[in-house]
């Protein structure tokens, strides 16, 4: 872990925080507010790779823990850690890790544009949606005692928006990595 790695991790943590300032809104009756912060988590994994990608949300969560309002809607503090939707916050770490791991496999030199976009989108969907939702739903089901079925179908309402975010993250990553040479690790 050299100083440049620290700089990249801090940068993507800051990007996740900054994306939270883009207006977010809770959907009536649904337990999780829609935010762009998960787009930042997907980008961290896709651009930086598994290890550094997973450390970016670790930094954000540490800042939440020391009481800074870095989550969407100015939320922060330890209260978030014990709330019913905390799984969707802690899930960022494995989500970015899996996204980065898959990006290393599915994206690489010598692949066509279309294949790269598809590969990166799949990485973002499996990591940023499947893994993240698994953590969030498990927490809702156990922590809020909502029951797996209801937690699952309640969270599904957010899936279409998150698929769009995954494709956006893939397109952004493609262009960013063409402009800025960076090894995933």
């Amino acid at each position: 872990m050299n100083t440049r790695d620290i700089g990249y991790i801090a940068l993507f943590a800051a990007l996740i925080i900054a994306l939270g300032a883009v207006p977010s809104f809770p959907i009536a009756g649904l337990p999780v507010p829609i935010t762009l912060q998960s787009l930042g988590v997907m980008l961290a994994g896709l651009v930086l790779g598994p290890k550094r990608g997973a450390l970016a949300p670790v930094v954000v969560i540490a800042l939440v823990g020391i009481g800074l309002p870095v989550l969407a809607g100015g939320r922060g503090g330890i209260g978030v850690f014990v709330g019913p939707t905390a799984g969707f916050l802690f899930g960022w770490i494995p989500a970015a890790f899996v996204t980065g791991l898959l990006a290393m496999r599915l994206d690489g030199p010598g692949k066509g544009m279309v294949a790269r976009v598809i590969g990166l989108s799949i990485a973002a969907i499996l990591g940023g949606i499947v893994v993240l939702y698994a953590c969030g739903i498990a927490w809702l089901a156990f922590g809020a005692k909502l029951g797996l079925g209801k937690a699952f179908f309640g969270s599904l309402a957010f899936a279409p928006g998150d698929v769009i975010k995954a494709v956006v993250a893939a397109l952004v990553t493609l262009k960013v990595r063409d402009a800025f040479a960076l090894e995933r690790k």
Binding site: A10, A13, A18, L55, V59, L63
Partner: peptide
């Protein structure tokens, strides 16, 4: 290094905006 990373992240937020 850990506190450097947290400090840098906070400094980068207004920069990104």
């Amino acid at each position: 290094r850990a506190s450097l990373t947290l400090t840098l992240a906070l400094r980068f937020v207004p920069l990104i905006v």
